[in-house]
Amino acid sequence: MKELELTNEEITVAYLLGELPDDEAEEFERRYLEDENLFQRMEEIEDELVDDYVGGALSAGRNAAFENHFLRTAARVEKVEFAQAMSERASLWKKTRETEVDDSIPVIGPHSIDTRQSTVTKPRWREFAAIAAALVFAVTSGALWFRVSNLQRQLEAAKRDEAALRQSESDTRKGAGELQSQLADEQKQSQALEEKINELEKFSTMDPSSRVVYAVQLGIDYLIGDSKGSGPSKVKFVVIPAKTSLIRLAVDFPKSDFQTFKVNLRRDRSTVWTRGGLKARGGRDNQTINLAIPADRIANGDYDLVVSGVNTNGDTESVAHYALKVERKD
């Protein structure tokens, strides 16, 4: 069974990297178009592939296939950017942890100086030498203490996390010995429960009572403050039917030279939904962007929708602004 899983995983990776022969790729596509579980697993494997690329774990051949075949859409580049940011953050966390392990050097502070009086008679020069040595030791210790305490402050956050993990592991170990078999059973039950929850989540997304798509067109007439200086702008009234789960919004705006766009949907000056790396399609005068917005992000109220053009340096410039009034029929 494990071999089969591995084979499936390898097939999926080969497919994503364009390495499968055409007939095999078509067969694989037929399977995942009809099989929700296979599609879900492919999504997971795709994310791992991105992580492997960022972590430098791919072979040279696969690295090239990743860059030349896989990395074609803005959405996938966004995944790479995310994995890169996570990887950097995690390696910082790892370094901090390793430093903590090296923390076996005792923390030296002023309190560690031994001030007990010796009862053995010693020559006076020895006493002076001992005092001098103690002073040097105290000064050095003080400096060390400050350095170590500084380091300790940096480690505090990691220690808190570590403590949480230890607590978690400690909780898991509870019930060892006599209760070990009972714990194993509970663990199995917990895993089964988790798998069941995953399944339920899948089914809940498929629950017909929670899935409706609603399409809205946001035409050029609704543009606020367009360059032609036309009359007062209109507010687009959007009435969302009950049980809507996805709003497909087509936004029209005047043609511009930008290659990609970013959209911000704001309410009370706070962003409630945003999407970048969007491509617009267009005719001679206007362009259109298609958005798919989860309906649960939209409540009753007034919204601003801002479309910004993004240049190759990543700078943005607003190209369109719309006002929406939303009413939900839930």
Partner: peptide, 11 residues
């Protein structure tokens, strides 16, 4: 964090 902390190894 642990999952992302290892480079050069397949996930």
């Amino acid at each position: 964090l642990e999952y992302y902390s290892e480079d050069k190894s397949l996930k």
